[in-house]
Design a protein around this nucleic acid. Structure first.
Lengths: 211, 211
DNA sequence: AAAGGATGTTGACACTGTGAACTTCAAGTG
DNA sequence: CACTTGAAGTTCACAGTGTCAACATCCTTT
């Protein structure tokens, strides 16, 4: 049995993950621009250049953090779906869960501003050729799943899927970013109202005649 | 008459503006992160710290560039309105111009990616206490104006203005950012289709029963 | 047991934002 | 008109960053 903290082994053992986690923490504190290679290495207790054994460059680390953020977002959406307990009415349930997904999206953005911005940072998506997690579920997947439920419930014509996807994703994504940026001065109450109103409005656009 | 280019006067004369313009150029080339104090000063032909006589810090310069970008965007929207020649039918015209504004928004974002991202950069809106241009018109103003036209034409209940504003702004803003980020691989044709479809869908949400 | 490759470390370089002290110049005051 | 004074630019300096090259250490495989 090797003592847990002997004196610090020369090899960290799980540096890549540790760096990503440090990066996540930095992103949570100050957004994508706060992800700094040297600081991440410092927090992990390792020399700056050790990171280059696991990431080609800083953007590569940012990309990894962004992917982590994306799956966190997806998880939050799924959790919110699970909190909606079925009422038996398939149509009502389909719409309620779809709405819940949108709400979870915005709430995650507000709760985890730094992570959310990192998830959609330009540099993150730029250095794309990074190895992707196998079982990673993306926010798009969760949304698509909900739209399919709407189709199955007969609320949405299958032919309108693509357009509906764009409207739903665009409006919720835009809403989140506006609340984080130009509308950041709004009170919690006002924000809440905006979110509810916008989600209803999206519903009106998505499902003509049914809300 | 002082010769236009004697030998370079010690005092630049219009440094603030020159720096902002250099900043705009940098932003156009590489987004908000590419706005670099020293490079801007270099391009203007002045020492790095000269900038500090006009801007408290780098974020202050970014803010100035962002404001310039915002008015550029607003101008593009207004131009697109003007390209819509009235057809006599007030309702049709109101909707057509509203739609044109949305389209101009997205097209500006695609055409001037760097500027657009700078306009909505976090650091830009953070250092807010900068002196604002007097006659500056904002994108929000243009949008509001179009919504009022919709109300005047009897297409939109005045009570729904706030909600409509949020839906329109959110969806168009989100659409633009998605096209620039996660959907950047789309072909020009696909993008176009997305934009048209989403705008129509927004119209459906905004004006129930009328498109 | 020795080789070899993966993993960390040190040292160095160019670049950035920013503060302090100095210089130049235009404008107003006695 | 000489002379001060304050705005606008400059130089020097420092800490912090990403990244490269060369070196050190350790696990693994033969």
């Amino acid at each position: 049995m090797t003592p847990a903290t002997s004196v610090k082994p020369y090899h960290h053992g799980d540096l890549r993950n540790a760096l990503v986690e440090a990066g996540v923490e930095l992103a949570r504190e100050g957004g994508p621009a706060a992800i700094v290679l040297r600081e991440a290495a410092r927090r992990v207790g390792v020399s700056p250049n050790a990171a280059y054994r696991h990431f080609d460059s800083l953007p590569a680390l940012v990309t990894a953090v962004a992917q982590r953020a994306l799956t966190d977002l997806a998880k939050a959406m799924q959790t919110e779906i699970r909190r909606c307990r079925p009422s038996g009415d398939e149509q009502a349930d389909a719409w309620r869960t779809a709405r819940a997904v949108g709400k979870a999206y915005v709430e995650f953005a507000l709760r985890e501003q730094g992570l959310f911005q990192t998830a959609f940072d330009r540099r993150a998506h730029a250095a794309a050729s990074d190895h992707i997690e196998p079982g990673a579920v993306s926010p798009q997947d969760v949304l698509t799943e909900r739209l399919e439920a709407l189709v199955a419930a007969g609320l949405l014509p299958a032919a309108d899927m693509a357009a509906a996807r764009m409207l739903a994703w665009s409006s919720v994504h835009g809403l989140a970013l506006l609340l984080l940026g130009p509308l950041e001065h709004l009170s919690r109450r006002e924000r809440k109202a905006m979110v509810e109103a916008t989600l209803d409005q999206v519903g009106a656009g998505l499902l003509p005649g049914r809300t």
